[in-house]
Simulated assay, not measured.
Amino acid sequence: MKAVVLSGSNQLAVADAAAPEVAEGGVVVALRTAALNHRDVWIKLGQYAGIKYPSILGSDGAGVVVEAGAAVDRGWIGREVVINPSLEWGANERAQGAGFNILGLPREGTLAERVAVPAAQLARKPEALTWEESAALPLGGLTAWRAVFSRAKLKKGERILITGIGGGVAVFALQFAVAAGAEAWVTSSSPEKIARAVLLGAKGGFDYSKEGWAKEAATAAGAFDVIIDSAGGPGFSSLVDLAAPGGRIAFFGATRGDPGTLPMRKIFWRQLSLLGSTMGSPRDWTEMVTFVGKHRIKPVVSEVFPLARATEAFELMERGGQFGKIVMRISD
């Protein structure tokens, strides 16, 4: 089969790869579409734990089940499905267990014509979504759901700030918050991305690259009950300043590194909660997929590339040019 194969640090190419074999309790999915995540870029650049070569990248995928292993309901064969990339979460709903892993490393991923996964990872493809939208949903939607609802416990009528709008998870967080009846605001260094967020239901946004943006946000919106962040870095202290008393700051990444010294007095005096979040549990997955169907949420697809142009898709993500998800069309 054809697949996007990483043969070394920054050595990515579409190449021939061995087709996966079905395992007991598993299925093989013939993929129609897949999607990129920043995780794929970090692996490509050699900036991720446990990297192995060669590897087939990709955590998001949608397609048709073509094989089913022993002990798997044969009714899955021929079904259109999306794949939950969060594997072996464990029994503790509060945090993933020691065996937790994500599709696309160490297990071979979805940027290929076929992928083998446990049958428990499957969900029916939502009928209202296109193949491209379906592939855009899994990792970003699951990560946003856990951060916004399972961890920060956003409620209707609360005010939420979502940083770095344009990335897939941030866009899902915005869509979920608006659907839940929250007052949503965003940040970005791009006025165009802020304008697009407003079209999705954000009340407004702020350019975090400008001096004094946090004061502008406090004046325009007031304090925030919930803040969702994936950057960290020196700007994290501004988020603490913007949090309302009793506010919750949930974060699922640190693309700008650690924030350095935290303003401890502000945090304890205002009784703020700092909430780490990673991917999501099987319960998070089920709740997210149900919510998307109930509220008719359409994942935002930024660009669609054929598999043969995978390197161009990675280049777009590396320069942060997307708004929403970058999708790969594997087959028609």
Rank of each mutant, 00 (worst) to 15 (best):
V115P: 00
G232T: 13
G141K: 10
V171A: 06
L274S: 05
L111E: 00
P306E: 07
E287V: 06
V240G: 08
K153H: 10
L199P: 04
I297L: 15
F172P: 00
Q322P: 01
V82S: 00
V66C: 10
L36P: 00
S150Y: 04
W213L: 12
G324A: 12
G167N: 10
G140Q: 00
Y208S: 10
G235R: 13
V171Q: 08
A116G: 04
A3G: 13
G99N: 15
V301H: 04
N37M: 02
A217Y: 09
G61W: 05
A254G: 15
R159F: 08
T187E: 10
T261Y: 02
F100N: 00
A310S: 13
P138D: 12
D207V: 04
A30P: 00
P106W: 11
V27H: 05
L174W: 12
K266V: 05
E80Y: 01
E211K: 14
G25Q: 11
D60R: 03
I162G: 03
F305I: 06
T187N: 06
N84F: 00
L154N: 00
I228H: 03
Q322D: 03
D229Q: 09
S238N: 14
R79W: 03
I43E: 06
A17F: 12
M1T: 14
I267P: 08
P259Q: 13
G246R: 05
P306Q: 10
L242Q: 12
E216G: 12
K125T: 09
L242A: 09
V22T: 13
E21F: 05
K2L: 14
G235A: 13
W76K: 10
A152F: 01
V5E: 05
E303I: 06
I194K: 11
A91D: 15
S302G: 08
A71R: 14
A19P: 05
P54D: 14
L12P: 06
F149R: 06
L111H: 11
G212Q: 13
W145V: 01
V289G: 02
P118C: 08
H38L: 01
V117G: 02
I83H: 01
L57T: 02
A243T: 07
P282N: 11
F224G: 13
G97P: 05
G324Q: 04
R248V: 07
G63R: 10
T286S: 13
K298G: 04
G280C: 09
V186S: 13
F224V: 09
L262F: 13
A35K: 05
A49R: 14
T278E: 01
S331A: 15
I227L: 13
F251G: 09
G63M: 08
S238H: 15
I228P: 00
D40M: 04
N92T: 06
R124M: 10
S277N: 10
G78A: 11
